[in-house]
């Protein structure tokens, strides 16, 4: 770990000096610093800011402070009642200890678990731009089938972010240039030719909260992993579904561990809206989304996996 100076942030628009990075729960950042993959010169601790509240919004929605710990979020009565997909997703991630540390903001901004990225001695376009992507010909069983590029096929590893994506979450940001907000999907950049650029935040912009709109349908999250717990997803599906008289009136679907960002399945949603809530339409919807998949040697199974999961989760909800 390279040495750094440490200070605590005192205001939301504090900003960041050059070479500085925000520190929240530290469960990803400190990990990467030890690995030599992250090398901030200044750490600005944001956990002392008053961002750890979950509050009701006037439209019946919910505002989740960026500093709310994952475990508190999952256990929040309103999250449990109105947004079970979110509670389930958070509880499917990491471990009890890590969830006590990890924050909402940090979870959204965690980096990929690509095994080459996590090892500073390996080539990797993301941590050392221009050094190449060994994953394409090497180990990519758990990397992207959607949204990748020839430069990078990393997946975003978060569970929580997949649920938030399906819930149409809006990110609140504050920085020296003022406050702004945007849909969660706009937080992430696809790798293209610049896989080291991952987020749309300007330097010094702080995530202050995530807003959830009110009035969702029934929702669920299902995660698949290589052991029963304490493992990142190899595939996951978050779904919010409203069915009236056997017909899908509204559906929001997001996939995890298959793309560089939590993957909103717009094509699948499009294919499903107004259709009968049957297994056949669920599978057809999944196929509509997965038609764009570009699997490599070892990750084609994710197509079958996501397809099956979509059908199974939606069947469970309808």
């Amino acid at each position: 770990m390279k040495t750094f100076t440490y200070r605590t942030a005192t205001a939301l628009d504090d900003g960041l000096e050059p070479g500085a990075t925000f520190l929240a729960g530290g469960t990803n950042l400190v990990d990467l610093m030890k690995l030599g993959v992250a090398t901030p010169e200044v750490l600005v601790d944001v956990t002392k800011l008053p961002l750890d509240e979950v509050t009701d919004l006037p439209d019946g929605g919910l505002r989740i402070g960026a500093g709310v710990r994952n475990s508190d979020l999952a256990a929040h009565p309103r999250v449990r009642r109105d947004y079970p997909v979110l509670s389930q997703a958070v509880l499917a991630g990491a471990s009890g200890q890590l969830r006590n540390m990890a924050t909402t903001g940090g979870n959204l901004l965690q980096r990929t678990r690509c095994r080459y990225f996590m090892d500073a001695t390996m080539p990797c376009n993301k941590h050392s731009p221009g050094s190449g992507c060994p994953a394409r010909s090497g180990d990519h069983r758990n990397l992207a089938i959607l949204g990748g590029s020839s430069s990078c096929i990393a997946t975003h590893p978060s569970d929580m972010a997949v649920a938030l994506t399906a819930l149409d979450a809006v990110v609140q940001v504050s920085g020296p240039a003022g406050a702004r907000s945007f849909p969660l999907g706009d937080l992430y950049l696809l790798p293209g030719e610049t896989p080291h650029r991952e987020f749309t935040l300007e330097h010094g912009e702080l995530i202050t909260a995530v807003d959830l709109p009110g009035g969702s349908g029934s929702s669920a999250y299902r995660k698949v992993r290589d052991r029963a717990s304490y493992a990142f997803a190899v595939g996951s599906v978050a779904a919010v579904l409203t069915v009236a008289e056997g017909t899908v009136t509204d559906v929001r679907l997001a996939f995890g561990a298959v793309a560089p960002k939590p993957w909103r399945a717009h094509a699948a949603e499009e294919a499903l809206r107004g259709r009968p809530a049957t297994r056949e339409s669920f599978l057809a919807a999944a196929d509509a989304e997965l038609a764009a998949a570009e699997p490599l040697r070892d990750n084609a199974f994710k197509i079958t996996l996501i397809r099956n999961l979509v059908a199974s989760v939606l069947e469970g909800l309808s």
């Binding site: 440490y6 520190l23 729960g25 530290g26 469960t27 400190v30 990990d31 750490l43 471990s95 009890g96 200890q97 890590l98 006590n100 540390m101």
Partner: peptide, 8 residues
């Protein structure tokens, strides 16, 4: 409960 190895 927390993992003390990831807390500065």
């Amino acid at each position: 409960r927390v993992n003390s190895c990831l807390i500065l």
